[in-house]
Simulated assay, not measured.
Amino acid sequence: MTRTESEETPVRRAVCPGSFDPITNGHLDIISRASRLYDEVYVAVMINKSKQGLFTVEERIDLIHQVTAEYGNVRVEAFHGLLVDFCKQRDIPAIVKGLRAVSDFDYELQMAQMNNGLSGVETLFVPTNPTYSFLSSSLVKEVAAWGGDVSHLVPPVVLQALRGRLSRP
């Protein structure tokens, strides 16, 4: 007996959104965990025209491709506009967000409720690994810019890109 197309198990999709400027080990931990829970995980790289990033969107996408290649079920795309529109266009019913602290929860809960109210998309909160509870891209950039060691906070390819971008003549 063969299964018809309508009887096949639907593909479970989720999105991990962010600016990822640059991607850190904390981001990678959340993406890795999501990739074990979902059939397809989209990493949506936010385009914010009013904010100048250290890396271009294309560079961020390339770095994310490199550090997530081993998972096999991660797709990386840029987006601008409403995240719920990104989700609708790709039939993604869930947003996965890492939470570092209670302060993250306050903001993320408002976003989750708004997104659900707009489109029915659910948000799943994943507690960050305590090793990365203090970590942010902004902090990594600041420490790296002052010559601090961030090698334990980002994947090697990202460290190399940071050093290249922040090297002083």
Rank of each mutant, 00 (worst) to 15 (best):
K141N: 09
P17A: 13
E108L: 02
V102L: 14
E122A: 12
A101R: 13
C87Y: 05
A69Q: 07
I31D: 14
A44F: 03
A78F: 06
L54P: 06
F86A: 00
T4I: 12
T128E: 12
I30V: 15
D21Y: 01
G53K: 12
R60C: 14
T2D: 11
N73F: 11
P155Q: 09
G164E: 11
E122I: 02
T4E: 15
P10S: 09
E58D: 15
A94N: 11
E40S: 07
M111H: 10
R33V: 13
L37P: 09
G98M: 04
P169A: 14
G148K: 05
V158K: 06
T131L: 12
T2C: 05
D104N: 02
L109H: 13
S119I: 03
L109D: 12
L118T: 04
S167I: 13
V143D: 02
V45N: 11
P169N: 13
H80D: 15
R168H: 13
E70M: 10
E70V: 11
Y132A: 01
V67D: 04
Y71A: 14
F134I: 02
G164C: 08
D29V: 09
Y38T: 08
S6T: 04
V76T: 14
V121G: 02
Q52R: 15
F55M: 12
Q66I: 03
I95R: 11
P156Q: 00
D62G: 03
L135K: 00
G18P: 04
F55R: 05
F105Q: 08
Y38M: 12
N115H: 09
H27A: 14
L135M: 03
A145S: 07
T131H: 09
V11Q: 07
E77A: 15
K97S: 04
G148I: 00
L124M: 13
F79R: 04
V11R: 07
V102A: 14
D104P: 08
H152W: 03
S119Q: 03
D21V: 00
C87K: 00
R90Y: 06
I47P: 05
R168D: 10
E7I: 05
V57F: 02
V84I: 07
K51A: 09
